[in-house]
Measured scan of single mutants.
Amino acid sequence: KLETFPLDVLVNTAAEDLPRGVDPSRKENHLSDEDFKAVFGMTRSAFANLPLWKQQNLKKEKGLF
């Protein structure tokens, strides 16, 4: 399991300012399950079932792209 970080560490943070080991294209993977659901309004599995373009739009909207 990946290390999780608080939302404010990941949202609207440039790649070079992210904690070590965080993939800038997969910031959402480093949210706790609770934060993930609070941000996206759905579970990880529901998010994973969305088309890629919709996932990317949601990530942009939430500052996690």
Rank of each mutant, 00 (worst) to 15 (best):
L2S: 11
L64N: 03
K1G: 13
D35P: 00
E61H: 07
N49V: 11
L58D: 01
F36W: 03
L31G: 01
H30Q: 03
L18V: 06
L58V: 05
F5N: 03
H30K: 02
Q56F: 10
P6C: 05
V39R: 01
F47W: 07
R44F: 05
K62V: 12
S32K: 05
K54I: 12
L10P: 03
R20W: 10
D33K: 03
L7H: 05
G63I: 01
V11K: 10
R26L: 07
A38C: 11
L58G: 00
M42I: 08
P24R: 07
R26C: 14
Q55F: 00
T4E: 07
D17L: 11
D8H: 14
F65N: 14
K62F: 08
L50R: 00
F47N: 00
R44W: 04
P24W: 02
M42N: 00
H30R: 04
K60N: 07
L18N: 04
L31Q: 01
E34C: 07
L50T: 01
D17Q: 11
L31V: 02
Q56N: 14
L31I: 09
A15D: 15
T13G: 15
E28T: 04
V11A: 11
A38H: 12
T4K: 10
E16V: 11
D17G: 08
Q55S: 01
A15Y: 11
R20G: 10
V22M: 05
E34V: 09
L50W: 01
V11H: 05
W53I: 09
P19I: 03
K60S: 09
F5D: 02
E61G: 06
A48M: 13
N29S: 11
A46C: 11
Q55G: 00
A48T: 10
D33Y: 04
N49W: 06
N49G: 12
E16Q: 12
L50C: 02
K54D: 11
K60V: 13
D17Y: 08
F5Q: 03
D8I: 08
L64F: 11
A14H: 12
K54L: 14
L10Y: 01
F65P: 06
V11Y: 06
P6L: 03
S45W: 10
V39P: 00
K62E: 03
R44L: 05
L50A: 01
K27G: 03
A14F: 08
L58C: 05
K62Q: 08
A15E: 12
S45L: 12
A15R: 11
P6E: 07
F36H: 00
A46S: 10
D33S: 05
K60M: 12
E61F: 06
K1N: 13
A48R: 11
G41M: 08
D33R: 02
F36K: 00
D35F: 02
F40M: 07
R20L: 15
